[in-house]
Design a protein around this nucleic acid. Sequence first.
DNA 1: CGCTCGGCGGACCGACCGGTCCGTTAAACT
DNA 2: AGTTTAACGGACCGGTCGGTCCGCCGAGCG
Lengths: 178, 178
Amino acid sequence: MARAEDPAGRERILRAATELFYVNGVRAVGTAEVIAAAGCGKNMLYRHFPGKAALVAAYLRGVRAERDKAAAKALAATDPGERLVALVGEVAAWVGRENFRGCAFRNYLTEFPDGDDEPARVARTYLRDTRRQVDDLVAELGAPAVTADRIWLLIDALYAGTGTAPRVAVDWARELVG
Amino acid sequence: MARAEDPAGRERILRAATELFYVNGVRAVGTAEVIAAAGCGKNMLYRHFPGKAALVAAYLRGVRAERDKAAAKALAATDPGERLVALVGEVAAWVGRENFRGCAFRNYLTEFPDGDDEPARVARTYLRDTRRQVDDLVAELGAPAVTADRIWLLIDALYAGTGTAPRVAVDWARELVG
DNA sequence: CGCTCGGCGGACCGACCGGTCCGTTAAACT
DNA sequence: AGTTTAACGGACCGGTCGGTCCGCCGAGCG
């Protein structure tokens, strides 16, 4: 029987898929490539996941869990303004690491613009929740609504990441709330 | 012999491909779908273009021509600061139109992150040139280099377009240079 | 020692991809 | 009217996709 703690399977497959999907794109990576990287048989993939869509959804959920944890850590400060700056700073740190390939959720929605499937819902839900998080923080701060728009704009620009130094966004955020 | 003005061919194919590639993504659209939308035979496509990559490159070059023309019109003002604001405003207008599906160049680079082919070069060249255009305008204005970073950040955020009102970016740009 | 059973590898399936090729049709020119 | 010629539509090719299935092997247990 399958061990409760990963019987040579699910976690390794998901880890390999995460790396490949994020670096090369979901469409460009086939299931054969995933199982080759995971070092298991193809049937193992379809035992743990109903299909590629479910694997992609699990990949996005895993990224979300990671991102949520990092965001929660950044929100440890008590002052709402400082928390907003920390939120932008956390995204900047994520963007600044090597092998950054953009936002996994935005990338997926770019690859499948009209998708209504499970991964698309995970991606859109993440974006909506994160946007609301910014709105709530700004409301807590008592700043006008346009401040939330601007913070979100900085985050969007960071994830787009076409060459601008992440530091620029963080400094601007500090000016904005300070 | 082929008429000089589009023998039921190149322009119509390119127009159909542009619409389909931009709306649904380059990877998602096959050559069969393009020729069906263009209403011509498959051989016509391969007479006018060596392959799909060349068609995609032509599509991106067409979008670039359109974007360059719109940008040139926005840069008609004499004051460098006003020109920067107009540049951001032009992008905002582009983003605000119905059926906006993101930046064609950024979308392509998201779909093919490691591509070194012709379309990828067109896309990267456009981004580099546009960025330099911003740098030049800021230098002409005599503003510090960080202003160029911030303008570019606004443009990046506009193209990302995950819900923020374009107006917010334009207003912020005006504050920045005013 | 032999039996069971889970997992690896790969063959296999139907669908679709980019790209080539050809038979037919219709228009244009003389 | 006859001939030429361009273009349409579709058959076709090799390859790859997501997904299924099966034969073999090796580890665990009676």
